[in-house]
Design a binder for these strands. Sequence first.
DNA 1: GCATAAAACGAACGAGCGTTTGTTTTTTCT
DNA 2: AGAAAAAACAAACGCTCGTTCGTTTTATGC
Lengths: 203, 203
Amino acid sequence: MATPPAHARARSRQDNRRQPLLDAAAACFRARGFHASSMRHIARAAGMLPGSVYYHFDSKEALLVAVHDEGVRRICAAVDAAIASAGHDPRARLAAACRAHLDVLLDESDYAQVVIRVLPEDVPAAASELAAHRDGYEQRFRHLVAALDLPPEMDRGHLRRLLLGGLNWARHWYQPGGDPPAHIADAMLACLRIPAAGDGSTP
Amino acid sequence: MATPPAHARARSRQDNRRQPLLDAAAACFRARGFHASSMRHIARAAGMLPGSVYYHFDSKEALLVAVHDEGVRRICAAVDAAIASAGHDPRARLAAACRAHLDVLLDESDYAQVVIRVLPEDVPAAASELAAHRDGYEQRFRHLVAALDLPPEMDRGHLRRLLLGGLNWARHWYQPGGDPPAHIADAMLACLRIPAAGDGSTP
DNA sequence: GCATAAAACGAACGAGCGTTTGTTTTTTCT
DNA sequence: AGAAAAAACAAACGCTCGTTCGTTTTATGC
């Protein structure tokens, strides 16, 4: 008989090569994007033949979704940990989150970069799934910004979008060896009109 | 004889279909990105056969470069005009530039969106050319930020990168019918610690 | 140690890719 | 009107794509 259907056997006892395969896919998607990454590239990077990939994943899109999910998971973990150990000052909590966000985005593995490199529009069949996961993450920043003590005329939504956009865009100009990510995050936060704790302009 | 070499005849008397072809390519590149846009897609959108495209452009990459250049040209024109009619206050000049930048990026034609949708890395052969054109544009913002009266501890480089990143990222969440681009630009600028004219904190 | 299941192989499939080429149609200029 | 140039056509080229499939290898559990 042929190989069993991959999706029916997801949590088997082993699947040893699943993780190296995901790593290879993440590296490929990060470097070349989704459409320019071929299954042959990915398989070769993982040390197997193209057909063998289909034992672990049902399709190229499923591979992308798995990488994307892992990327979101890693960013969430890093940011959540940073927030948790940042005390209670809303500004300090936001700063910690931004540092962690940029750290995992610029330094660490390929997974996180795939999240901002591959657009949902690139994978129509799974676009809503990717977008939903990303939104779930950004929800954290919604809460962080909501806790800030801001001048009443400032729009918190646009503050969040400005900040996240500015951080994410760093991938276009950042180069290792220059400013460390944490310093970049601090410098950008310093550009924003966010009063320090107990420094409200309307006391 | 066959068709003449396209690059040898660039500035002919007509070339009527060059512009519609560029338009179709811009729409395709914007919607699907570079690698997912095929010459057959583009040709069909322009109402011709795939082979006919090569009378006007030497390759798919040349088509992309032409679209990209036109995109940069349009953004530059819009922003330059906005700056020129914005008076002398540095903050007002930056605000005008941001409004124009976002206007042309979100509302107007596909050309401008291609500039931020297609990454130089997607087209290795022309990557440096694309990057150079984009840098030439961003130089304008370097000057605008340099003219601002800022607290000495603020990093102007990171202020520029935060602002441009935040604006460019708008393409991921903007939807027509919501906030108009000019309003978004104003709201984001209002989040930044930029003193109004004659309001320096170190008088 | 042998049945069994996991995992990779090797070869192919049809489709679509960017591009080339010789020819034909359309337009322009005299 | 008729030559010359511009522009589109139609058909293929070699190649790579995502994916399928029957088989073979590799590891596990009794």
